[in-house]
Each structure stands twice: as structure tokens, then as C-alpha cells.
Design a protein around this nucleic acid. Sequence first.
DNA 1: GATGATTTGTACGTATGTATA
DNA 2: ATATACATACGTACAAATCAT
Lengths: 236, 236
Amino acid sequence: MSLPESPIALAVPPTAAATTARPGRRTRAEDIREQLADEITRGQQPPGTLLDESALAARFGVSRTPVREAIRELAASGLIDARPHRGAIVARPSFERLQNMFEVMAELEALCAGLCAQNINPAERRRLETLHADMGEMMRLGDFAAYREANEQFHASIYAGGHNDYLVELTLATRQRLSPFRRAQFRALGRLALSHLEHDRVVTAILRGDRDGAAMAMRDHIAIVHNAYEKYAQLI
Amino acid sequence: MSLPESPIALAVPPTAAATTARPGRRTRAEDIREQLADEITRGQQPPGTLLDESALAARFGVSRTPVREAIRELAASGLIDARPHRGAIVARPSFERLQNMFEVMAELEALCAGLCAQNINPAERRRLETLHADMGEMMRLGDFAAYREANEQFHASIYAGGHNDYLVELTLATRQRLSPFRRAQFRALGRLALSHLEHDRVVTAILRGDRDGAAMAMRDHIAIVHNAYEKYAQLI
DNA sequence: GATGATTTGTACGTATGTATA
DNA sequence: ATATACATACGTACAAATCAT
């Protein structure tokens, strides 16, 4: 129940971002890719939607060339499915595949948490503690919006604490691919309280330096199957 | 010490391959991407090599357009680093990043093995047993080439036994990105014997249905740090 | 630092393959 | 089943940015 539905925007493909800091001029294809990725992850372009090159070119006020390049990159990242001569559609994984992706997501998050327990430094530790305490207050106040926002930072802090950028990229990429199939999870107060309780188990294990415990607590927190079922409905 | 240096050729980006079976006509960009990926993973285009669009276009007898599309996809998959207005080079991860990638690789393989222990079916089980036994014979005969070949199938069998295609794709993608930084590992007979012994621990755990044991055995088998060091030398 | 050469980014036109009548 | 319409794949030309001098 943790993965927030507003995805962390990946301005640049994870890969490239980490390989080199990218100072250079922004290209149109980049902007278009970023914009399309954002719309897909937000659910504005639901799975199965056909991405028409000419229509997109007209919409963005460019020729088809940069649109095509954006589509190629999104296809390689798995967010869309580009079929030769038949156009590209927003990816629509099978139910079984979604289950697989959720399972992997849980394991990646668990690995992040485990590495965090092992590698977190004092500054990161303080930040995680503070953040978690603040979220406790948000929960007590019933401030859903703030909690959701903070939840992003919470998970991001755990990613960072693992000190493995490649793992972070894989995790974010998987999260991005799953985001069209998730929606708000913090509607009820009970959910929010449960989430915070699960977070507490994760944080405690991390601060204790308990790698296995942190991984287990995070794995449970992600609650794979639940997510998978809940989201699949919206596909049909 | 297991990852074999001749990578499993990824004809199609893992992503697309699993989303849809691709019956359609092959496109030039696809062929070029496949060819370039192959050359990079084989080490024919070492890290840092500049991929000149015009030169590649001339070489493949096409215009720059399909070459550019191939480059975009390879960049998104992380095999190359495309810098706006500055050309694309074969990815050259930092030493720290390589370590991160090897660590993740070990964890992904471990996860595959763990899932395999949990989900393998009788037919797959028989195949794994047979394959492992055959590799024992190859080891005793000192047949390096055959062993290396079979090693590919061995790992692929374990991937398959996990019944999680998404995980398989992540694992193969990571393996592909690491392949330029690996080289032959089976030179010495002792290495071959040790590999087989480690395989034996993995297989035993899998056949016993011992998820954690299989994961641990596989994690050990991958021997992250060793690989990372050994391969980094070739970068400089 | 300015200028020319070179390479990449974008626009546009044509060919080819797919889908529908 | 054939033909027609349409979208995509590719080629070519130009614009813009980078780099070499």
C-alpha cells in the first residue's frame, strides 16, 4: 500500500542521468518524451491508448521526427509498446505480467531497505528519523495530502541511504512502469495509520542496522498482491 | 565468477519482447540496434567509443535516420550514453557505479534462484538436473568451450524456473550492460571445478525447494567484488 | 574570443507496409 | 480477395549547436 500514485518524474532516463550529468541544451525530443512519460504515469494516457505520430507532432508544434525519437525511447524504457508499422500504444501488460512486476517491485524496495540498513550515514539517518516523526504527526492530523507527499520523500530517503544509484534507477523505472496501474491508497484513515505502522517497522530495523529485518519489513509494506488486483480492474 | 562473457544476445529490448510477440516485418533500425548491441557486449566497441551517425549510416548502407533511432533505443537501455549535440559513446560507468551494478546483478540472480526454488515445475526440474550433470562431465573432461556454453543455459534455466518474465528481463538487461566489463573466467581448471561446486550448492537448494538457501548460494556464486575489480582494469 | 568546419537536431517528402472496405 | 486509404519507415535537406583552428 505504499507506492504513491504520483510518480517521481523521471526527467531524464535513469540510465543517462547517472552516467553523466547532463548540462547540454535541451532537445525537443527530450521535452516530448518527458511530457508523454508524465501523462502516461499520471494516467492521462491510459494503457492501450494509441500514440499517433502526426497528431502528437501537431500538438507539440514540431515535425514527426522528434516525436518518433521520443516514442523510441519510451518504448525502450517499457512505458509504451512500439509495434513496427502499426504504431505505438501505451503499454498494457497482462495480468500475470503485472503480478510479476509488483513482485519485483517489492523485492527491489526490500533490497533498497536492506542496503539502507547497512550503508546509511548519520546525516541520512537523522533525516529519515525526522521525516518519519513528521509523518506520524501528519497521520494524527489526518492530513492525507501532506502524508502522500512525505511518503515520496520517505521512500526516496531509503533509496538514497542504500548508496547504490543503479539500484535506485531500476527501482524508479519499475515504479514508473507500474504507476499507470496504481491509484490513491490513502483514502481511509485506517490505511494511513497502517502505512505509518509499517513504516515504523522499516525505520526501526534500518536504525538498528538490521538488513534482513529492514528488507522483510519493506517487503511486507509493499503488499504486492493487493495492489495488483486493485489496479487491474481499471484496465478492462 | 559465473556471468559468462558471451552475452545472451538480446535481439529485441527485453521490454518489447515480453509485451508482445513481434511477428511483424523487421525494420532497419532494429537490425542496426541489434548489431550494435552485439558489438558492444562482445567488446568490439569498447566503452568510450564514439558512435558516429554518418559513419554508421555509411557502414550499414542506410541514411542517418534508422541509425539515430537505434542509438536512441540503446541509450534508453543504458548500453550507450547519448549526449545532446555531442554524439553518443559506448557507456563508460565509473568504478563505483560498476560495483553497484555487480552488486545488483548478484541480488537479481539470487532472487531468480530463490523464485526458482519456489516455482520450478517437474519438467524444468528434470532439465536443470540433467544440465547440471552434463556440466559435471564437461568439467571432468576439461571442455571449457562446452562448459561455457552450457553455463549460459544453466543460468537461463534458473531464470525460467522462477516464472517471472519481468525479473528475467531486468536480469538480462543488467547482465548485458555489464558484459563489456567481463571477460573469460574459465581459463583455469580450478575455476571450472569451483564453478561447478557452487552450481551444485545452488541446484541442491533449488531441488530441495529452499528459497533462501538457493538465493544465498547464487549470491555467493556471482562473486561481485572479484568481477568488478578484474574488469575495471581493462577500462583504463 | 571569433570564425569556419563538422556533427547533431529537426523538417519535410517519398516509399512501404498495414488495415479496412 | 483486391484495392484503397492511411500510418509508419526511411531518405534528403536544412538549421543549430559543438569543436577545432
